[in-house]
Amino acid sequence: MGFRELSDDMDALVLDGLGDMATVGGREIAGFFSAPWLQPRMGRINTALREPQFEIRAIDADGIESGQLVSIDLSVQDGGGQYDLVQLEPDGTGWVTLILRMRA
Rank of each mutant, 00 (worst) to 15 (best):
Asn46Lys: 11
Arg44Lys: 11
Thr93Ala: 07
Gln53Asn: 06
Phe3Gln: 13
Asp9Gly: 02
Phe3Asn: 07
Ala58Gln: 11
Ala35Ser: 14
Met102Ser: 14
Gln82Thr: 08
Trp95Leu: 10
Gly31Asn: 02
Pro40His: 09
Val24Ala: 02
Asp9Gln: 12
Glu55Ala: 05
Val76Thr: 12
Leu18Ile: 05
Thr47Ser: 11
Arg101Met: 13
Ala12Ser: 11
Ala48Ile: 07
Glu89Asp: 04
Ala22Ile: 10
Val86Gln: 10
Thr93Gln: 10
Gly63Cys: 01
Arg50Lys: 02
Gly80Ala: 01
Gly94Lys: 06
Ile72Leu: 13
Glu65Gln: 13
Leu88Cys: 00
Gln39Arg: 03
Ile99Gln: 04
Glu51Val: 15
Gln53Ser: 13
Gly79Glu: 12
Gln77Ile: 08
Asp84Phe: 04
Pro40Cys: 05
Leu13Gly: 00
Val24Ser: 00
Ile64Arg: 09
Phe3Ile: 13
Met10Leu: 14
Gly25Thr: 11
Ile64Glu: 08
Phe54Arg: 04
Ile56Cys: 01
Leu6Glu: 15
Pro90Leu: 01
Leu6His: 11
Arg50Phe: 00
Val24Gly: 01
Gly67Glu: 03
Asp11Phe: 03
Thr47Lys: 08
Glu89Ile: 15
Arg41Glu: 14
Ala35Leu: 13
Asp8Gly: 04
Trp37Phe: 07
Glu89Ala: 08
Phe32Lys: 08
Leu88Asp: 02
Ala35Thr: 14
Asp11Gln: 05
Gly94Gln: 04
Trp95Met: 09
Gln68Asp: 08
Leu13Cys: 00
Arg101Ser: 15
Glu89Asn: 11
Asp8Glu: 13
Arg103Ala: 12
Glu65Phe: 13
Arg27Gln: 14
Ser66Thr: 13
Pro90Gln: 05
Gln39Leu: 07
Pro90Glu: 01
Met21Ser: 13
Ala58Arg: 14
Pro90Tyr: 05
Gly79Ser: 10
Ile72His: 03
Gly19Pro: 02
Glu51Thr: 15
Val96Cys: 00
Ala35Trp: 12
Ser66Ile: 11
Asp84Glu: 14
Asp16Cys: 03
Ala48Glu: 07
Asp84His: 04
Phe54Ala: 03
Asp78Ile: 00
Leu100Thr: 11
Val14Ile: 15
Gly2Asp: 15
Glu51Asn: 09
Trp37Gln: 08
Ala22Pro: 06
Gly63Tyr: 02
Ile72Met: 03
Asp73Tyr: 02
Val86Phe: 07
Ser7Leu: 06
Gly2Leu: 06
Arg4Thr: 11
Ala58Thr: 15
Ala12Leu: 06
Val96Ile: 01
Asp78Ala: 07
Pro40Asp: 09
Thr23Val: 15
Gly63Phe: 01
Glu51Pro: 01
Thr93Asp: 07
Gln82Cys: 07
